[in-house]
């Protein structure tokens, strides 16, 4: 494949004592795609995602953003390269408003004296930008952008977290189990949200245990096994049961005729 990857990894190794969580793991994400990452518990997929989002530092190997080798010292470091993560816990402050949460850690100050000397926030502008970002994703702010996040439903909170991730000129959004804690209806909305973000041209890495969800929204499926990428399958050519068989080792990558 000659297409330029937006985010990739080569030969990542991460050891915790005698346990090798990542064993020369590779990873590729192409522009505009939804890449699902699946794997059994303990396969090392969360270690890989943490390495890609800057939460852990791999012992060996390299991470490339648009072909250039980078090192992330923290999630903030990864964010500077436009890699935003929507954590399973969402990392929202429940008692604060939607607008406060959207701009947490990157608030906008007023221009002029009030901003420079008295560090006053430009709340009007932050509210307006939050509203714009939410409506872009089809999250209509009928009631109030000043609503506390805890007054929102699970799906709405997910929406706020995704809007925040998509708002700041980001290149990649990593979503960790976005539907795990949600009911059927709310999950549906979050899947739609993923497709909306994709339509904006933003690539998404989706970590999920839910096979029907993965097969519905993913363009490609990265199957992780024993600390490395076993293969990448196309949801159109691969049955759900085969994906599970690959994941658990009941089937080898050669049998499906696709490999990394």
């Amino acid at each position: 494949m000659t297409k330029q990857t937006i985010l990739s990894a080569r030969g990542l190794v991460k050891r915790y004592g005698r346990v090798t969580a990542l064993d020369r793991c590779d990873f590729d994400l192409y522009p505009g795609e939804v890449l699902a990452v699946i794997g059994d518990n303990g396969a090392g997929k969360s270690s890989m995602i943490k390495a890609l989002s800057g939460a852990i530092q791999p012992d060996e190997g390299e991470i490339l953003v648009e072909g250039k080798s980078v090192r992330f010292s923290s999630p903030i470091g990864a964010r500077e390269y436009g890699i935003e993560t929507v954590y399973q816990t969402l990392a929202l402050s429940p008692a604060l408003s939607i607008a406060d949460n959207m701009f947490m850690g990157r608030e906008i100050r007023k221009s002029g004296m009030m901003g420079r000397v008295f560090k006053q926030l430009d709340k009007a502008r932050m509210r307006q930008l939050s509203r714009e970002k939410l409506s872009e994703l089809g999250l209509m702010t009928i009631q109030s952008i000043d609503q506390a996040v805890e007054t929102l439903s699970g799906g709405q909170r997910q929406g706020v977290a995704v809007a925040r991730a998509a708002a700041f000129g980001s290149r990649v959004i990593i979503m960790d189990e976005p539907t795990a804690a949600l009911g059927v209806k709310e999950s549906r909305k979050v899947l739609d949200l993923i497709l909306t973000v994709k339509e904006k041209g933003m690539p998404i890495i989706l970590i999920s245990h839910n096979m029907p969800h993965v097969f519905e929204v993913a363009d490609r499926i990265h199957i992780h096994r024993l600390g490395r990428r076993l293969c990448v399958v196309n949801p159109g050519d691969c049955k759900m049961s085969d994906a599970v068989a690959l994941m658990t080792g009941a089937m080898s990558a050669d049998e499906i005729g696709q490999s990394a």
């Binding site: 999630p75 954590y87 008692a95 947490m104 850690g105």
Partner: peptide, 20 residues
């Protein structure tokens, strides 16, 4: 921003940290 951070830290320090 400092004030918002004080509230965020009190609310959920782990979330505040991840949010930057």
């Amino acid at each position: 921003a400092w004030g918002r951070h004080v509230y965020a830290v009190g609310d959920d320090p782990a979330a505040a940290e991840l949010a930057g």
